[in-house]
Simulated scan of single mutants.
Amino acid sequence: MKIKTLIVDDEPHAIEIIQKYIKDFPQVELVAECNNAVQAFQILQQNKIDLIFLDIKMPGLLGTDLIRTLNNPPKIIFTTAYQDYALEGFDLNAVDYLLKPIPFDRFLKAMDKVFDLYKLEHQKIGIATHLPETKGDDFLYLRVERKTVKISVSDIYWMESLKDYIRITLKDRVLVSKQKIGVLEELLPDDKFIRIHRSFMVAVDKIESYHAYAIGILGKELPIGRNYKAECKKRLTQGI
């Protein structure tokens, strides 16, 4: 899972600094950057954003005023040259408040807070993620009956939604956890999994065959939903 991020600042140099720092974090995906709060509002309406690096004092609309317009704001790290805004920033439940010029060690502490929040949130809903620094080391923690079970992402063949539960098929076992398939879709890497039906999500590298209405995996056929056909055709004809 990538933390989708937006930078909002009217100073080009400030944007460049944060861009440079973000490159050291493979878990973070920079979706966009802009130089005023109105542009940021439009980007937020069109994209799923998890984290904003937000300058406060900008022409037109203050960063703090932008946050007040949002019903469900992302996580916020305020960036500003003005210490006086710190209290107001934290009143808006900001993760952190960075004073310009931002040193890398201070930026690192702010990101550590972001990662801790993600871990806590996933634990609250019964699932935790490990955000790997290298590929092949990723795993999930799932609540199965009264135990927490560690599952390697590479062992997953497919997932099936059962209302408020999800059934995960591995090569040698099947697990059932109280969880929504949409939550797992957000957590699992986009390049390794594909949603083929409102009730099914599969590992791309485990697919054995494919036709217009179903995919073959582990000797079984799983249906492709009408609303997922175009994306399946695009993804699977490239990989099979």
Rank of each mutant, 00 (worst) to 15 (best):
K2V: 04
T5I: 05
T5N: 02
V8E: 06
E11Q: 13
E11R: 06
I15T: 08
I15L: 08
E16S: 13
K20R: 13
K23S: 11
V31C: 04
A37N: 05
L44C: 07
Q46N: 12
I52A: 04
M58F: 08
L61M: 15
T64K: 02
I67A: 04
T69K: 15
T69Q: 15
P73I: 02
P74I: 02
I76T: 03
I77V: 11
T79A: 11
T79D: 06
A81I: 02
Q83H: 12
Q83Y: 15
L87E: 10
F90N: 00
D96T: 04
Y97F: 15
L99G: 03
P103F: 03
F104G: 06
D105N: 15
K109H: 12
M111A: 03
V114K: 02
K119I: 13
E121K: 12
G126P: 02
I127N: 07
L131E: 00
P132C: 04
D137K: 14
R143H: 13
R143A: 11
T148R: 09
T148C: 10
K150H: 06
K150D: 07
S154L: 09
S154M: 07
I156Y: 01
L162R: 09
D164E: 12
Y165Q: 00
I168D: 01
T169Y: 14
K171A: 14
D172F: 01
D172W: 02
R173L: 07
L175A: 00
V176S: 09
I181T: 04
I181D: 06
G182P: 05
L184Q: 01
E185N: 07
L187T: 03
L187G: 01
L187M: 13
L188S: 01
R195Q: 09
R195P: 09
R195H: 08
R195Y: 10
H197T: 05
H197D: 10
S199L: 07
M201I: 12
M201D: 08
M201R: 05
V202Y: 07
V202M: 02
K206L: 02
Y210A: 02
H211M: 10
A212L: 15
A212S: 15
A212D: 13
A214Q: 14
G216L: 06
L218S: 14
G219W: 09
K220I: 09
E221T: 10
A230T: 15
A230Y: 10
E231D: 12
C232K: 04
K234S: 11
R235E: 10
L236G: 05
Q238D: 11
Q238M: 14
I240S: 09
